[in-house]
Amino acid sequence: MKQQLVFATNNPHKIAEVKRQLGDRYAFLSLQEIGCTEEISETADTLEGNARLKARHVKSRYGHDCFSEDTGLEVYALDHAPGVDTAHYAGPQRSADDNNQKLLSELADRKDRLARFRTVICLIEGDAEHLFEGECEGRIATAPIGHDGFGYDPIFVPAEGDGRTFAQMTQDEKVRFSHRARAMAKLEDYLKKPQGEVHPTA
């Protein structure tokens, strides 16, 4: 029988990425599938804090062991903005196009376009919490390129790639560099370890 995991999101793109990476080893439940339809507060000032808020909400309200993630795009020339405001950088409408255009506008006259994506996952098992982090260094393009992916993918060029944005890559190509995939790999390594074995948290 597959191990069942609640992934504290209803974002279909994130769910698809995780399912693609972990394949048939796990049966995932989304927030909607456990009856969680309310907006979960993300008021912490760090990615780690927001990941914990979401996981603790699911555990305390619905009783499920679960994992959640928070991802931020950190642009060095902008003092690591948008950071925790990544999803609603241009406003509460959470529009990817608006976010991309705002970021491109703020970098219009800057030569330093280096940035990184960072994902933090919080897993809650019983009373224990574990954090796993993944990063992807890169730069911000001067204009959106590509039609795949989501969020900032059309303007983010990973440093380890071949010069294409995430939005120009297939999902299989993106997962080679993805911050979320790297954090998920650490979560997967943890889940594979026999119970009782010491597990690193990062």
Rank of each mutant, 00 (worst) to 15 (best):
L78F: 10
E17W: 12
L191Y: 03
F150L: 09
N11M: 14
C122R: 00
A185I: 03
E137S: 13
E17C: 09
H64I: 00
S41P: 03
G35E: 03
R20Q: 15
M1N: 13
R110E: 06
E39W: 08
L131W: 06
T71R: 10
R118I: 06
S41R: 11
G35M: 05
H57I: 05
F7K: 07
I15W: 11
L191A: 02
L104P: 00
L104Y: 03
N50Q: 05
E173T: 06
G91R: 08
A27I: 11
G49F: 04
Y152A: 06
A51I: 00
F28K: 06
G35L: 02
K2G: 08
S30G: 08
I15D: 08
G23A: 12
D65F: 00
R20L: 12
M1W: 11
R56I: 07
T86F: 11
L114C: 11
Y190W: 14
Q93H: 14
R176K: 13
M1P: 09
V6D: 02
P158L: 08
R113K: 11
T142R: 15
G151R: 10
G163R: 06
V84F: 01
E133I: 14
Q3C: 07
R52C: 06
D112N: 09
I121T: 01
C66T: 04
H179G: 02
A159N: 13
K102H: 10
R20N: 15
D24H: 10
A16Q: 13
K19H: 12
I34R: 02
M1I: 11
K111Q: 13
A202W: 15
A181I: 01
L29F: 15
T43E: 14
F67I: 05
Q171K: 14
E48W: 09
S105F: 15
H199Q: 09
N100E: 13
A183Y: 01
K19P: 07
D162T: 13
K186H: 03
H179K: 01
A128R: 08
L78K: 12
T170H: 03
G63E: 05
K174F: 07
T170M: 06
R139I: 09
A44M: 04
A185N: 07
